[in-house]
Design a protein around this nucleic acid. Structure first.
Lengths: 328, 328
DNA sequence: TTGTACGCGTTATCAA
DNA sequence: TTGATAACGCGTACAA
């Protein structure tokens, strides 16, 4: 591999002059510049980003930690995040923990080693302390740590409310809510559960919650669970769940001979393409993935630049997209 | 940030001794080791991977270039690739080109700069020459460059044949095949088209092909196309397409009042979860994503180690998974 | 305008 | 067993 000195030698100048041409740092006489550029072309010279990064004390890479990149929620997010990073000259390092908290811990350790400049966290299996002490720019998705670490979320309270109203307007009497096993008040999407329950009970609708690993990727498991529950509790006439489990319930219901939406309403939370690609247009609470992704990158860039962040909690509105699985 | 010299100073030794403890390179007396370990703990020392990589001339990162990580085919692949890389001490840098060939070119340029040790290519918008001259370990997915660059693929010929037989067994008379706009004999999945056509015509079944951007992510576009085609050509009674467009056709057909599988059979190619999560169990030609991902990483590791690769083309069998969208 | 010399953090080599 | 030194490739004071 040709280095900067090789180029310099070939062009008959010092290495630093080449560097200047490379970065446009100082004035270089046109002829010298030409000679250098030619030498670079001839040697097929490519600057070594590793050395550059070492000098500048930055790698030009931002990591994103997710439980499972297969999950449409995270792959969509990743797509937009990657895009924004690229526009700003950063690369994305993707870390998929496979729903393993131990592995998340290991990744956090690795990521400290100057290999990335910051981390966008789409997973939160560790204690808040681990995030507080991370020592590098950190942006959280849907998880509150403290007032210094930026968080990007959707307005889940509104999401829960919207879903509840849709169930109520559909005339549902007994709504099952598939919740997140790992609920904390720190996981902000939890608010959707609370809001759903509040609103439903206020209108005299029965409500029940079953918790699963919300962001896992176990479709067959969901399907089994769905069959079990639908058989066991035939009175249930409304279901809210994340896209994946929701589509499992939908499938199970139809296969058990339940009419949707006549006998069972389904609202899926998130609104990723999984709800779109189904034969029935699924009613969803839609999160603005693109905006969430872009904003989390903006936050990251601010942190990297050392800008002040006046509003560490950014909340996006959600949207009810009415489909064929509710009765309004 | 504490460096290795800070640790050395605090422990009263030379920097290289600390390095030895860190890497277990040579024997260090237990007491010295203890002192050093304590100093590391006290200073919260974390080795700088950048500097390490610079010295070793490797970054410990492998890139994966895909057209769009949102696409379930690629997000699944990415999940398994990331996993295998992680098991082997490598990190994954994800590059999503947004279906933009210009951006693929730019990425290729960036990736040359010592920032990654190798690239797994899930996209192929450039000329074979660009890949040949890349200068770093390269593993291709589904794209043939030459006999030196490893390729991992599915047995698409068998895939096409299996699909054809399923259509024939279902009694289809006119099969529409949604193909890939960017077909070359280099893109190996093209063979599925050829095999499908061969087998169908051999059995006197009409066959027609419409090409789209196969790996793009334009579900609404697919839906429009599907409606158009299904209205225009009501004689069509069989459709083969990738998962996304296939599900669009399925949705469009049902919404147009076509009975599936009675009046229309659908076989979706790839077999990602998009086909699974549908209300109807879709008949699919299933590619073994996990094996493909793992194998491409194994190939990459061999290249990185400089091992000889005796078999640069690895082909995996595909599988017909019969669902409710065909009539056998 | 250009060159010299050094530092970034780590490790390998060689000598003590 | 340990230490001193050079080197990896680049960027930046500072000097010329």
């Amino acid at each position: 591999m040709a280095g900067i000195r090789d180029v310099a030698k070939r062009a008959g100048v010092a290495a630093c002059t080449v560097s200047r041409v490379l970065n446009g740092t100082a004035n270089v006489s046109p002829e010298t510049r030409m000679r250098i550029e030619q030498a670079m072309a001839e040697l097929n010279y490519i600057p070594n980003e590793l050395a550059r990064g070492m000098f500048k004390q930055k790698a030009g890479i931002v990591a994103m930690l997710v439980p499972n990149i297969r999950h449409p929620y995270f792959s969509s997010l990743a797509r937009y995040i990657e895009d924004s990073l690229y526009q700003n000259g950063y690369k994305l390092m993707l870390c998929s923990t496979g729903d393993d908290e131990e592995r998340e811990r290991e990744y956090l350790k690795i990521l400290k080693s100057n290999i990335v400049d910051g981390v966008i966290m789409g997973v939160s299996g560790q204690s808040p302390k681990d995030y507080e002490e991370f020592g590098k720019p950190l942006v959280m998705l849907d998880y509150y740590v403290n007032d210094r670490i930026p968080v990007v979320v959707s307005d889940h309270r509104e999401g829960g409310r919207l879903a509840a109203r849709e169930f109520i307007d559909s005339g549902c009497r007994y709504v099952l809510h598939i919740g997140n096993e790992a609920e904390t008040e720190r996981i902000i999407s939890y608010e959707s559960h609370l809001a759903l329950r509040e609103e439903l009970t206020a209108h005299g609708v029965r409500e029940r919650e079953v918790d699963i690993k919300w962001n896992a990727f176990d479709y067959d498991g969901y399907l089994e669970l769905a069959k079990l529950i639908l058989k066991e509790y035939p009175e249930i006439d409304g279901i809210m769940a994340a896209d994946m489990p929701a589509s499992a319930f939908l499938k199970a219901a139809v296969h058990l001979g339940k009419k949707v939406p006549e006998e069972l309403c389904v609202i899926s939370y998130d609104g990723t393409f999984v709800s779109n690609t189904n034969i029935l247009e699924v009613t969803t609470i839609h999160q603005p993935m693109k905006e969430i992704g872009q904003t989390s990158v903006e936050m990251m860039l601010k942190l990297l630049r050392g800008d002040k962040i006046d509003q560490p909690l950014v909340k996006f509105p959600v949207q009810l997209k009415r489909g064929e699985t509710t009765r309004t």
